[in-house]
Design a protein around this nucleic acid. Structure first.
Ligand SMILES: [Zn+2]
Ligand SMILES: [Zn+2]
Ligand SMILES: [Zn+2]
Ligand SMILES: [Zn+2]
Lengths: 124, 124
DNA sequence: CGCGTTTTGACAATCATTTTCGTTTTCGGC
DNA sequence: GCCGAAAACGAAAATGATTGTCAAAACGCG
């Protein structure tokens, strides 16, 4: 099915960082695609719903997406300037979050953990 | 200065959870205040800029604010249903984030860490 | 080919947040 | 107290991302 969705997925894969829907739309159009903005949003929603891509909010509150190398649970170290991201893991953080939630009687505990900074390239 | 800002701060303090600007505005108006929405936004921005209140984004991407008991660095355990929040700390998370950033050559490393769940009251 | 289903995209509608801009308050100096 | 500058206000318009609508186009299949 959907060549459209694949196009979005691929465009996203070609970037190392988090990208916004508007951003990806611009890229696709620039590459000659006749895709519509609505479809880009739908594709991104479907992809994130199925867990194929990660989504988070940047400082402006807009949703940004990334096609990560793994679909297993992980977090990111994101460059505040260029958006480049590195996948990171923190076993202790995982257990800390779960325990903290349980300690206070919370159920269905999840967490958001993102580390931001300026990457080597952008700091020079 | 600004009785307005104080009004916003106080209304926020009366809640144990994170609240949105629109939400606080409705509360203030309901209490008879003639405050304008613009002013609520300005007050919240000023308060968060000065570090007096914490701000984060809910699932819908809208900014929500909270008047925490301390101005020192901490995180939250937030109820996904009612928004109630508990201030939490995680020393190991702090060092983990800093080290992870440094390990990859990132500078000016910061992090966002929030734990979500369903609070005891909302789960019953 | 026909036909029902799914996908698509132009366009309108939402909705939180920001800008604008004239009005009102506040405040220090007189 | 009185005055003008500066700061604070608030109503209304502008912005901008995201979502809803709906008719047209692409697809699957007999
Ligand atoms: Zn960078
Ligand atoms: Zn995790
Ligand atoms: Zn709750
Ligand atoms: Zn921290």
């Amino acid at each position: 099915m959907s060549t459209r969705r694949d196009a979005v997925r691929q465009t996203l894969s070609e970037s190392s960082g988090f990208r916004s829907a508007q951003d990806l739309y611009a890229d696709l159009r620039a590459d000659g695609s006749k895709i519509g903005l609505t479809t880009v949003y739908r594709a991104l929603q479907a992809l994130s719903d199925s867990g194929e891509i990660d989504v988070l909010r940047n400082d402006d509150g807009e949703a940004v997406y990334r096609a990560c190398g793994t679909e297993s649970h992980h977090h990111h170290l994101v460059c505040r300037v260029c958006g480049t991201a590195v996948e990171i893991e923190g076993p202790t953080v995982e257990s800390w979050a779960a325990e903290t939630g349980a300690k206070h009687g919370f159920t269905d505990v999840t967490h958001t953990v993102e580390v931001f900074g300026t990457c080597p390239r952008c700091s020079s």
